[in-house]
Simulated assay, not measured.
Amino acid sequence: MSASRQRLSEGRWHFQHGPMDIVIGADPLGPADQRALAEAHEHAWARFVPLLSELMDEWALLRLPVQAGHPCPLQGGVARRMWQACLPWAAQQFITPMAAVAGSVAQELIRSYERPGVARAWVNNGGDIALHLTSCQSARVGLYADLARLQAHECMQGLSLDGAFEVTHTMPVRGVATSGWRGRSFSFGIADSVTVLAATAAQADAAASIIANAVNVEHAGIVRQSAQTLRDMTDLGDLAVTVDVPHLPVAWVQQALQSGLQCARECQAEGFISGAVLVCQGQSLTLPMSSGNASVFFQDEGLALA
């Protein structure tokens, strides 16, 4: 299957190639900068076309866990970015570069828009987002608490947001990523969603995976299954991933969220993330940015913000 692109409404573009499903939006700095914007779109497309092949050329290495204290064995720029984004957690737990693949691809493409004449741009790779913001620019990012609900309705119009937040150019945030057991990727935890704000999309992607894994409890009703029985060529091998979570008592959900929040706090203290929102079965915890200039506004009255 070859790469394809389609122009969408409001000047957006849809790029698709295999598992990479990307929507890009960008604004010119002024009316005279339409050509610069068009050139940025063409540059992004030219970079996108070979990306899947580049990653598949190193697929065997990308499936191996990152090893702390060892040099990066990868050659491609995106592959190396994936590896570096996952390195901070390699000494403590199992993680492969694939934990940061979507964010790293988005980050690679946003570079096409970091040029004169482009006021702002966003690259959304299946929910993992890279941002380009010039002075006085901002981006409003929607939050869906339940990834399964989003996927079930992703082709429908009018799906209401659970929350939203704004990223301004003065904030140390240029990447937003979400992970959870009901998303496209596997998780060891039970979070419906963990949304992370970080300096880059690759860092946000890796951290979201780690924190979502930490939102966890041991409960007999939680069903886990070997990853390799669920998907061919998975990087997780025979590790058990979450496939079903029953309705849990409130105290159990809070315990899982607190475990994830502690992990998020450690990530923030190390400078890996700026903030996070953790959601599980209608309950949520927020790790605010240390500067206090970012807030998540929940719009669903049934979602309890703790």
Rank of each mutant, 00 (worst) to 15 (best):
A3E: 10
R5S: 07
R12Q: 12
R12Y: 11
F15T: 00
V23D: 02
A26P: 06
D27C: 09
P28L: 01
L29M: 10
L29C: 14
G30S: 14
G30D: 15
P31D: 08
A40R: 03
A46H: 13
R47N: 09
F48A: 06
L51A: 00
L52G: 09
L55P: 02
M56T: 14
E58F: 13
L62P: 01
L64R: 14
P65V: 10
V66I: 08
Q67H: 09
H70Y: 07
L74Q: 02
L74E: 03
V78G: 02
C86G: 04
L87F: 05
A90K: 01
Q92M: 11
Q93T: 15
M98A: 10
M98L: 15
A100G: 04
A102Q: 05
A102W: 01
S104D: 08
V105M: 03
R111G: 02
R115M: 11
G117Q: 06
A119N: 00
W122P: 01
N124D: 13
D128S: 05
A130W: 01
L133A: 07
T134L: 05
T134R: 15
C136I: 07
A139M: 09
V141H: 02
V141L: 15
A145T: 12
L147F: 06
L147M: 15
R149N: 04
L150Q: 10
Q151G: 11
A152P: 03
C155K: 11
G158A: 12
L161N: 08
A164P: 01
V167K: 04
M171P: 04
V173W: 01
V176P: 02
R184T: 12
S185D: 10
S187A: 11
F188K: 04
S193H: 12
V196W: 02
V196N: 00
L197K: 00
A202V: 08
Q203I: 12
S209G: 11
S209V: 15
I210S: 03
A214H: 12
A214F: 01
A214R: 06
E218W: 01
I222P: 07
I222K: 06
V223Y: 07
S226E: 14
S226Y: 00
T229E: 14
R231P: 00
R231K: 13
D232N: 12
T234M: 06
L236Q: 06
L239M: 13
V245W: 04
H247V: 15
L248T: 13
Q254L: 10
Q254G: 08
A264L: 04
Q268E: 14
Q268Y: 05
F272N: 09
I273Y: 00
G275C: 10
V277P: 00
V277M: 10
S284Y: 03
L285F: 11
L285C: 09
S290R: 13
V296C: 12
F297D: 11
F298K: 00
D300Y: 02
D300V: 00
L303G: 08
A304D: 04
A304R: 05
L305T: 15
